[in-house]
Computed example of a mutant assay.
Amino acid sequence: MDYGRRNTKKYSFRCPDLKELRKLSSFVLDALDFKQRHGKILSILSADEATTFAQAGSVDAFEAIFVLLIYGLALFPNIDGFVDVNAIRLFLIRNPVPTLLGEMYFSLHLRNSKGGGTIVCCIPLMYKRFISHLPQTPAFVENKQCLRWSQRLMSLTNDDIDWYDPSLSSLEIIDSYGEFSNVPLIGTQGGINYNHALARRQLGFPLRDNPNNMLLEGLFYQKDKDPQHLKQKIVHAWHNVHRKGRSEFGPCNCVALEAYTLWVKKKAMELKMPYPCERPMSMVVVEPLTLPNQDVEELEDALIKIK
């Protein structure tokens, strides 16, 4: 099916130099204990103070500065080489996940609305989130055909996507906050909402029908540009979190029924595709190398002579 083509936009990414930060990770004596107290931030990976404390044997001081550097330089980058006040506040709160999501969605939406530009968020996190759903088959990972990323992505089918992690199937998910019909998030530069009605399959739940338009209402504001006082409303809504699970959404069978699929195809026709569709990679079969019988006999004779 031809969904038509739309113009692509050019983006760049702010990628801080984490070379020195990675060197500091070697001073972490107990990685498991560090993970339990600070989360999985080691995997995200000028730090003179941290090095000094590490060499002096002050573990608590070293870890505090080290984690703060990760927050400021990797998780919430703003000014190159500096840890800004927002990162310090989030470090003290110790609950960066909602803000990380807000930063990522906010920056992507802002740059898309501007027609391109520099995306400022935790790039390693965004990359890990992206590739976690891609197939791990040799054909896709090795890319022996040297296809461009656009070609590889446009060749994927429904069966190729790794939709969700089964180990999370027993968890309840945050469905909405307060008066909001979805999940509003606050980042350091503004706020945006997360319409998880479009992402339930990534959480293992089935998608039976086209989403209710009310669930897809957009929310967006920029820092110092909030005439509707959305930030204040979001903060208030966080005190009333609505969670749902299997009893509301059904079993974790990770399926998309026809009604939802038709809705997605209709949206694709409206929005069009940035790249042409490619032949599904799962259908591309590399034929084994075969030799004519005469060549095989010649090789066997050569092997006998070598022996």
Rank of each mutant, 00 (worst) to 15 (best):
D226W: 02
R148L: 14
M269G: 02
N212K: 15
R246A: 06
A197C: 01
Q151F: 07
D224M: 01
E172W: 03
L153Q: 11
E172K: 12
S150M: 08
F140H: 00
Q202G: 10
R148G: 14
N240W: 08
Q232N: 09
P206C: 09
Q228L: 11
E179I: 13
T157F: 05
H229Y: 01
G245H: 02
R148Q: 15
N253F: 12
G178S: 08
M214E: 15
C254S: 14
G187Q: 04
S170N: 14
L203Y: 04
G250R: 01
I192L: 03
K244S: 09
L271T: 11
F180D: 08
Y177A: 12
L185M: 13
C252M: 05
V264A: 00
N182W: 10
I234V: 07
F180H: 06
D224L: 01
G187R: 06
L219A: 00
A197T: 02
D209Y: 06
L215C: 10
D209M: 09
G187Y: 03
I174S: 07
I161C: 05
N158V: 13
P227L: 12
N143I: 00
L230T: 09
P184M: 11
P251L: 14
C146Y: 13
Q228M: 12
A197M: 01
L216D: 04
A268F: 11
P184R: 07
E142W: 10
N213T: 12
P211Q: 02
A259S: 13
L257E: 15
G178K: 08
M154V: 03
V183F: 12
A237W: 04
A259C: 02
Q232C: 08
D175N: 14
R201M: 06
E258C: 13
P206N: 07
W263V: 01
K265D: 10
L185R: 10
L230A: 07
I174H: 09
L215M: 13
R243I: 00
Q145I: 05
F220M: 03
Q202M: 11
H229P: 07
H239E: 15
Y194S: 02
K244V: 15
S170P: 06
Q222Y: 08
Q151H: 14
K244R: 10
G204P: 00
L153Y: 07
A199E: 07
I186F: 13
R200V: 00
L216S: 08
P166L: 13
N212S: 15
H196E: 09
